[in-house]
Design a binder for these strands. Structure first.
Lengths: 207, 207
DNA sequence: GGGCCAACGTAATAATAATATACAATAATA
DNA sequence: TATTATTGTATATTATTATTACGTTGGCCC
């Protein structure tokens, strides 16, 4: 992977490029110029070229970008060519909803276990998944080589969960609890703050 | 509401301040200085003061900010003192998960209907909610004075749904479909791109 | 009540990111 | 082989965001 510091702004745009390219590919388009992308995506053409060039020259002068090739390259940059083993912590509504999210699996994120502290939640869910107790988490992570944990606990439990997961060697946390969990350097965290987004919507509504 | 352009970055921080203040209030703290907040939140103290001053001088020199007062002010700025009526479009996993999200209701977002195009989904859900057909959406929105719609459809249907909702007079859209829906000026959209966030996590993992 | 101090409010500055412009290099095409 | 399109890249400009610096104000103590 390229090492010189790439700005977070660029990185956050990569998934958008990826989505766009997937759509174009589905639509049967096999060639795109930066100016075409620019019009479709509402970004500056030169910014697009610059973004892509952070990772290498994927285009061809006088021709443009091959949709399939570029999509594959971005997938590689994002690490979507890998497979990740994932556990979910918290078998509430969100946890269960994510459990059934088939499209994650397609992209290489395989949910192999869901855990909860509440004994009432233990046992079989629809579709054959089983909810385990938290006491079995450590050994499960060790035995199954888990890469990513999704935190779907109430906010009170989130930081404790994160600490626990990190101590088990988890390297990536996808956090749905409405707190900013703190982890040591070397562990990646992405937060989905649902209510933050809803509040911003509310703000926009009363402007 | 203050009119001079306030930067999106500031607005996105407001929910975070709100969360932080709620926690401090719960913890029984009634006074905070910007430098204390700065340490807790990992933001620059002066940035905090500037952010808050976009909306008015809520602090007191030589003293700091009253937690309760500041929290109330931010709630007002975000429009959380209002009540919103909300419909969900799409009764799949995410739609159903959001339907049961009690905490939204506490903050003034009341989900009053859930709709789906699939006849197989019609009928009663657990907890007494009923899934309606899309053909009844127009009249439902008109009769119930709906403010916000949550789009939980597959990506193919999202833009069509958005168009439909806007034509019914909906002013705010909370979009969970993995596309950027386009709406006319005057309609607010907030996107939750779950997979974008997951992809960024994946990127961070293979850095 | 006067001086001191804490912490705000805000102006000035610096850093980051986005946009625009330009152009040589190069592959496709006719 | 000439033409054309479009990249890759440099540079400049503008906009946005964050940081530093400091004057101002109100509370508090002696």
């Amino acid at each position: 992977m390229i090492d010189e510091k790439i700005s977070p702004a660029v990185i956050r745009r990569l998934p958008r490029y990826y989505r766009y390219l997937s759509e174009m590919e589905e639509a049967g388009i096999d060639k795109l110029s930066s100016s075409q992308m620019s019009m479709d995506m509402g970004l500056n053409a030169s910014q697009i070229r610059r973004d892509l060039n952070c990772f290498g020259g994927f285009g061809q002068q006088g021709y443009g970008y091959s949709v399939t090739k570029l999509k594959k390259e971005i997938a590689r940059i994002l690490g979507l060519n890998k497979r990740y083993k994932v556990v979910i912590i918290g078998a509430g509504r969100i946890g269960q909803a994510l459990l059934g999210y088939r499209s994650f699996m397609l992209e290489g994120f395989e949910i192999v276990g869901i855990f909860d502290s509440d004994p009432a939640k233990m046992g079989l869910l629809p579709e054959g998944h089983e909810v385990f107790g938290l006491e079995s988490l450590d050994s499960f992570i060790a035995e199954n080589g888990i890469d990513i944990a999704i935190i779907c606990t109430p906010k009170e439990a989130a930081q404790k969960s994160a600490d626990h997961l990190v101590s088990c060697g988890i390297k990536g946390i996808w956090n749905f609890a409405p707190v900013d969990v703190a982890v040591r350097r070397g562990v990646a965290v992405e937060n989905i703050h649902l209510s933050d987004s809803l509040y911003v919507l509310s703000y926009k509504l009363c402007k």
